[in-house]
């Protein structure tokens, strides 16, 4: 039982981090209708900046720099490339983001090489004991920070002018533009926010018990894709639920790997995708996604 509880707590905290990534992904989709495959490399960029800067300027300043850098990269991608691409379909824009992802990931993984970069976080490998359950402190912080960020974000979405502009754009971009919403600013800010969230997520993905930032970190970031889509690409609640589902499934499957030996080694990595397939079979637009009104 203790093992199960431990795995569950770990799963939820990892899930919260996935939810952060998925949230950025959903924000971009809502604001611009672009499926953003650059997300994994935004995350890598944020993590890389933190890892390189923390010995020089300390962890907190490095974290701020990493968040700023990832937000800047996101904004630049939007400003320099997507805004200038005049294409017929959004699908082609998705492929453009794949092109950008290839560029960024290749360069960053080349810089990282075979190293495993520590992030110099203040929590280290301390653990917290709650009765029979032992949890890494980083996980608890991750859960708290992710929850706080998500709540703050949902509130901002509801009550600030920026949030209203974003929602209006998601509803009907043309009408929003006629009402004076600056679509360029909306999509630029969406990309910047997504980058910032990705950088925070990168930090939590690379601290204890993970050894650090290495070239495999993008694979971890990939798990946010099923999180976003199984919740529904256009739903912030969905991103939250999807992240938690993916995190818990992955942790439980990895934790009980020895009992699930017939499924093969490393089933934890494939499990989120299997769950995604099952959910998509039952609900093609995700758990909380809007159904297409037209049936053809």
């Amino acid at each position: 039982m203790a093992v199960f509880l431990e795995l569950l707590v770990n799963g939820i905290s990892v899930g919260a981090v996935y939810a952060l990534i998925a949230l950025g992904f959903v924000v971009i989709f809502k604001a611009t209708e672009v499926v953003n495959f650059t997300h994994a490399s935004l995350l890598l960029a944020g993590g890389y900046v933190i890892a390189r800067l923390h010995p020089l300027i300390g962890f907190w300043a490095a974290l701020a720099a990493g968040i700023a850098a990832a937000a800047l990269v996101g904004a630049l991608v939007e400003f320099l490339i997507l805004r200038r691409a005049h294409v017929g379909s959004r699908g082609v824009l998705a492929i453009v983001t794949i092109g950008v992802d290839i560029l960024l990931t290749t360069e960053l993984t080349r810089q990282i090489g075979t190293e495993v970069l520590a992030l110099g976080d203040p929590w280290g490998d301390r653990v917290l004991r709650l009765g029979p359950v032992t949890v890494a402190e980083t996980r608890v912080v991750a859960l708290a920070v992710a929850a706080a960020l998500i709540v703050a974000f949902l509130l901002a979405f509801k009550f600030t002018g920026w949030g209203v502009a974003m929602r209006a754009t998601a509803e009907d971009a043309e009408t929003a533009a006629l009402m004076g919403v600056r679509l360029g600013r909306v999509s630029l800010s969406a990309w910047a926010v997504a980058g910032a969230l990705a950088a925070v997520a990168a930090m939590f993905l690379c601290v204890f018990p993970t050894p650090g930032l290495d070239r495999g970190t993008t694979a971890a970031a990939m798990k946010a894709f099923p999180a976003a889509i199984l919740g529904g690409l256009d739903s912030t609640t969905g991103a939250l639920a999807g992240g938690l589902i993916v995190g818990v499934t992955e942790t439980l499957m990895s934790g009980y790997q020895s009992e699930l030996a017939f499924l093969g080694r490393g089933i934890g990595d494939a499990a989120p995708f299997l769950v995604m397939i099952v959910i998509l079979l039952l609900r093609p637009s995700g758990l909380f996604g809007t159904k297409e009104p037209a049936r053809v």
Binding site: V34, D269, L274
Partner: peptide
């Protein structure tokens, strides 16, 4: 095809990521 027929565009793109990860898992384990 139950998924390929119902999802459209980039949506399907993410769903097909599953083929890669599950496929790699099978290739290494079977």
């Amino acid at each position: 095809s139950p998924i390929a027929g119902r999802l459209k565009g980039a949506y399907l793109g993410i769903a097909t990521l599953a083929l890669i990860f599950v496929g790699q898992h099978i290739l290494f384990n079977a």
